[in-house]
Design a binder for these strands. Structure first.
Length: 823
DNA sequence: ATAGGGTTAG
């Protein structure tokens, strides 16, 4: 089939507007622009004696011109020249037009190894790895041409399958070209890319001649397989052999500084870069920015970025991520704006940073648009990273339903997707849902739990006190070899201490590495919630003497430990130490702890004065702490004052109304109690439903207040009625000030009896053998009346009862509580 | 006419 084309006449174009006889595929020539014709014309004219195709090849800057040239080659008969047609294959590949590259290739009647190599390379340069490998197979099976040492460096790059790789390796050996530096480096790279670093190293060791590329290949092999120390070893070896370092070496080795936490080395490399003038390489500068950013040195990162003469998308993404990861959303956003002003289109990595920024700043408004942007481009269908970022973003913003939807919409999920969802539920207080998702994940073939999975599920188990399930996870961690991992270990410590097994927490603490503050914080907090303030302090001293730097979390744990144990002086000492010795600015949590510490100990005026001197605005937790202290110490006036301030900042939390009503009741102001009740009712409070849980036979039962749907409901209530009678005979008087509902007295008694902690205790009593310790979890603070009741119950039933509430542990035994009513 | 080794993420 022949198609006739007449090029559109342009001012000068008439001279080349001769009629060409072309195959039909050149129909697309009709889209040739006058400009491209002009360029071609100039190229052709530049040599007047005969067509200088060499010059024309060089002037081909877009695929239309290339096609025009192609046409001329065909018409002039030069297409039969294998030199020209091979160049054409390469030209199309460079211009990104794989199908025409392929066409040009197929038009070559007798393809030699140059043509085959060019075609394979063309596929690889355009990311068509599958086709490249297929083309290589065709070369082997049908062409009668032998691959050579130009073939393998290219085709090895395309190889994504170990068996293919080994076959190629065999051919290389058979052809005796394995000693070629290019081929050998490519083998190193192939093995490392497929994760077989040891094979890569073997290739490297077998090399008799090593050039820069060989060393670089080995270094990057280690880097990309997470073996930072080995990478550095090779790097040092390379320097000892007197090799110079080129930009490739530098940009390969720089990323290992961050995981090794080695800023000094990074700076030394930077010095080398400056000394040898390598800083103008974009890869090098980008790697420097990333190195500095990951090690928290934003200023040097910024300086490198500022002095780059040319920046690419990676440079922009890196500087944006640098600020985003160091919690400076505002500057990160500023760079994003600049990036767009400089004409760069955001890519998937930019979007990952953006979603992180939105999550960090709690900017719910922008979450949808970002999500929509990704969907419009179809990126969510092909990039698991992005899907995971979206799930994480919604979860962090508290929109767990959106997170779930985004998760479900992902065509493929990996272990990180599951972890993100589990963490999302856990961090939004939905522990049971988190556990449910975890079980679903377990039933999913192809998903292997990793460190992140353990770190996401353990806090959920701690939250509801699922000790037995937690121990199962501990076993799994051991099997995975992760139980001594700092993060998993810390979660386990936290799990054991929150599930009432402080001893197990301690013995675990003694096993995990404790160079960082993370496990220390967990164990100090563990001592604190169990009421062992002195021990917490002692541990803090050990921490200091071991040279571990405490952080702001350490001081929250420590201050609350002091406050639970009534260690006022020590608490104040910590508060000072934190600022003076460690330069940590107290945040609201620290202030809350201090107010609590002073107030609970009875220093109400001091506590109030403390609030007045705060340099930041007190929030509800701070005023709530003062209000709680006023209840304990019966200070009515200050209590009124505190509750007024409190309701100015948070009028939604029903717990504070209970406190206030309690204060009124303590001084016998029943009208005040009524007032608070109706106030709470009028505001239609979104109250957090109170629930308690207990684990019996590997199963966690959760009881909501007044819940009557439990299968053992009848037995539970009859147990409670029986206990109530005995308690009363021992002198128990119900304290109705803990009931907010405006109902009759006996109804109030009924409400107290139906409190979730009592249902859980009663269930524990009827479901376990005598003398067994009962362990209960309550999501809010334990109710004051239930606290009294539990003391009686522990005496009547001769049981130890351990109640963990949102604040601390209460060990009930023989009618007493470990907290000494100081809580 | 054809070749290897490089920087950013959840």
């Amino acid at each position: 089939m022949v198609f006739t084309l007449r090029a559109k006449p342009t001012s000068n174009g008439n001279r080349i507007s001769k009629i060409l006889q072309l195959p039909q595929v050149f129909l697309s020539f009709s889209s040739l622009t006058p400009n491209s014709l002009q360029t071609l014309h100039n190229g052709l004219e530049s040599n007047t004696r005969e067509l200088d195709f060499n010059a024309v090849f060089l002037s081909c800057t877009d695929t239309h011109i290339a096609k025009c040239l192609h046409a001329h080659l065909l018409v002039s008969g030069n297409a039969r020249n294998i030199f020209f047609s091979t160049r054409l294959v390469n030209l199309y590949a460079d211009l990104g037009d794989v199908s025409f590259s392929c066409l040009a290739f197929e038009q070559i009647p007798k393809k030699n190894v140059f043509a085959w190599n060019s075609m394979i390379s063309g596929y690889v340069r355009n990311g068509c790895y599958r086709q490249a490998v297929d083309c290589y197979s065709r070369l082997l099976t049908t062409s009668g041409v032998r691959p050579d040492f130009f073939t393998f460096p290219v085709v090895l790059k395309a190889c994504w399958d170990l068996s293919d790789g080994r076959k190629m390796h065999c051919w290389i050996s058979k052809l005796g070209i394995g000693s070629d530096v290019f081929v050998a480096a490519s083998l190193v790279h192939m093995y490392s890319r497929l994760g077989f670093v040891d094979d890569a190293r073997k290739m490297f060791d077998e090399m008799t001649v090593r050039d820069m590329g060989s060393w670089n290949a080995m270094i990057s092999a280690y880097c990309q397989n997470g073996k930072a120390a080995e990478a550095l070893e090779v790097f040092e070896e390379m320097r000892l052999e007197g090799m110079k370092l080129d930009p490739v070496t530098i940009s390969s080795i720089l990323p290992v500084c961050a995981p090794l936490n080695d800023l000094l080395r990074g700076m030394l490399i930077h010095v080398y870069v400056i000394k040898h003038g390598l800083e103008f390489d974009v890869f090098v500068s980008n790697a420097l920015i990333n190195m500095y950013a990951k090690l928290g040195s934003l200023d040097p990162a910024r300086r490198v970025f500022d002095q780059m003469p040319v920046r690419d998308l990676v440079s922009w993404n890196s500087i944006i991520a640098a600020y985003e990861q160091n919690n400076d959303t505002t500057r990160a956003l500023g760079f994003f704006v600049q990036m767009k002003q400089n004409g760069f289109q955001p890519d998937a990595l930019t979007l990952v940073s953006l979603s992180s920024m939105v999550a960090q700043s709690g900017d719910s408004q922008n979450s949808r648009p970002i999500h929509a942007f990704m969907m419009r481009r179809g990126w969510l269908l092909e990039d698991i990273f992005l899907g995971n970022a979206v799930v994480d973003m919604y979860a962090k913003l508290g929109s767990i339903a959106s997170a779930q939807k985004a998760f479900e919409a992902m065509p493929d999920k990996d272990v990180i997707s599951w972890n993100a969802l589990i963490t999302g539920y856990a961090q939004n207080g939905l522990a049971s849902e988190a556990i449910e998702v975890y079980h679903m994940m377990e039933g999913c073939s192809g998903i292997v739990p990793d460190q992140g999975t353990l770190v996401s599920i353990l806090p959920a188990l701690s939250h509801i006190g699922a000790l037995q399930q937690g121990m199962r996870i501990h076993g799994q961690a051991i099997r995975m070899g992760l139980h001594l991992d700092v993060f998993v270990g810390t979660c386990l410590i936290d799990m054991y201490s929150k599930c009432g097994r402080l001893d197990d927490a301690i013995s675990l603490f003694l096993q995990v590495p404790r160079m960082s503050s993370v496990p220390w914080n967990a164990i100090i907090s563990g001592y604190g919630i169990h009421g062992h303030g002195e021990k917490a302090l002692k541990l803090f001293q050990e921490m200091q003497s071991e040279g571990v730097k405490p952080d702001h979390v350490t001081f929250v744990s420590l201050l609350s430990a002091c406050s639970h144990a009534g260690l006022v002086d020590q608490g104040q000492w910590c508060f000072q130490l934190m600022q003076e010795d460690y330069g940590i600015k107290p945040n609201l949590k620290h202030y809350g702890c201090m107010v609590d510490l002073l107030g609970r100990a009875g220093h109400l005026e001091k506590s109030y004065a403390f609030i007045k001197n705060m340099p930041i605005l007190p929030d509800s937790s701070v005023w709530g702490a003062l209000l709680g202290a006023c209840r304990i110490h019966g200070n009515f006036e200050l209590g009124m004052f505190a509750s007024n301030r409190l309701f100015e900042v948070d009028s939604e939390n029903v717990g504070y109304y209970v406190l206030l009503s309690n204060i009124y009741a303590n001084v016998g102001k029943w009208d005040g109690v009524d007032k608070v009740r109706s106030l709470a009712k009028d505001r239609g409070l979104k109250k957090t439903p109170g629930w308690s849980s207990i684990e019996v036979n590997n199963r966690v039962d959760v009881f909501y207040t007044g819940n009557k749907s439990h299968p053992k409901c009848e037995e539970i209530y009859s147990e409670l009625r029986m206990l109530l009678a005995k308690m009363k005979s021992l002198g128990y008087v119900p304290d109705y000030s803990f009931v907010l509902q405006d109902v009759e007295e006996d109804e109030k008694e009924h409400i107290l009896t139906g409190h979730s902690e009592r249902l859980a205790i009663a269930f524990g009593l009827i479901s376990t053998p005598p003398k067994t310790t009962i362990r209960i979890f309550k999501n809010l603070r334990v109710c004051g009346d239930c606290h009294t009741a539990t003391k009686f119950i522990s005496k009547i039933t001769e049981r130890e009862i351990v109640v963990r509430d949102s604040n601390r542990f209460h060990h009930f035994k023989d009618g007493n509580c470990s907290c000494g009513d100081y809580w």
